[in-house]
């Protein structure tokens, strides 16, 4: 059984259907990529999986590690091991990056019935993660995402990924706005986490990221559906031909 199983998912927002009968299964140990043009519903899918409330699921089901994902609160999904690296991370003024992450670590531990992480252990893990993704110590002390550059915000999402070590991570256009060095740092972090127990869903416009995080499967999403799936070579094909042929098919 796959880690994440999506069956016939339909999602509307503001009365408009955005995801229109999507099927997808990601087994443990695999990295799947979803590629697609703007407005195809990729980010909506990511938000729905993480539990954002602005969307309505009208049909279909999602199972995560055998549980009914859509019946769970966002924090329960996180506790079950789901993580979303967001495209637009929010700022929380007055709450330091480090404090926030420590709250998150301990909230997850509490939900799983584990004791709090010792401050020294947490700091060690945080500093290691910061080195891996190339985040300066100073950024750890600043308010969460406040006055971070676009690139810093993305790196910070991956920092959280490293510290929280979720079973399954969704990366929503983490590559957009990143220079090549940042892209490599993100890929290094993700690749370091790959393993037989862990799954990834990487959402992106461009094939570039997939040169560094090589996926097991690539899915093309157009107008709320997966219209084609294939191996990693599909990403290259998309880069050459664009989404045009798929859009025509969908129409």
């Amino acid at each position: 059984m796959a880690m994440l199983e999506i069956e016939n998912l339909h999602v509307t927002a503001d009365g408009k259907e955005i995801v229109r009968g999507l099927d997808l299964a990601v087994p443990a140990g695999e990295v799947h990529a979803i590629m697609g043009p703007n407005g195809s519903g990729k980010s909506t899918l990511a938000y729905v999986l993480a539990g954002r409330e602005d969307y309505e699921v009208t049909e279909g089901r999602v199972r995560f590690l055998g549980r009914d994902l859509l019946a769970m609160e966002p924090e329960e999904r996180a506790a079950a091991g789901l993580f979303l690296a967001m495209q637009y991370p929010v700022e929380i003024p007055g709450v330091s990056n480090t404090y926030f992450l420590r709250q998150a670590v301990n909230a997850l531990r509490k939900a799983r019935g584990e004791p709090e992480m010792k401050p020294a252990e947490f700091m060690k893990r945080l500093r290691e993660a910061a080195r891996t993704v190339g985040i300066r110590e100073e950024l750890l002390r600043r308010d969460l995402n406040a006055d971070f550059s676009g690139g810093e915000k993305k790196r910070n999402e991956i920092l959280q990924l490293l510290v929280l070590e979720p079973a399954f991570a969704i990366l929503d256009e983490t590559d957009s706005g990143l220079d090549i060095d940042a892209l490599k740092a993100v890929a290094r972090a993700v690749n370091g986490l790959r393993g037989p127990e862990r799954g990834f869903l990487v959402i992106t416009h461009y094939q570039r990221l997939l040169e560094f995080i090589v996926p097991d499967r690539v899915h093309v999403m157009v107008e709320g559906r997966i219209v084609r799936s294939g191996g990693k070579e599909l990403a290259r094909e998309l880069e050459e031909r664009g989404y045009e042929p798929f859009l025509r098919e969908a129409a």
Partner: peptide, 30 residues
């Protein structure tokens, strides 16, 4: 109070009540 901030906290595992307290305490930090 921003829904986006609360969702962000919750998506990281911080339960809603704690998320509210966290955001409000941040607002009052000074």
């Amino acid at each position: 109070l921003s829904e986006a901030q609360l969702f962000y906290c919750r998506a990281r595992g911080i339960p809603l009540e704690d998320a509210v307290a966290l955001v409000v305490n941040g607002f009052c930090r000074e």
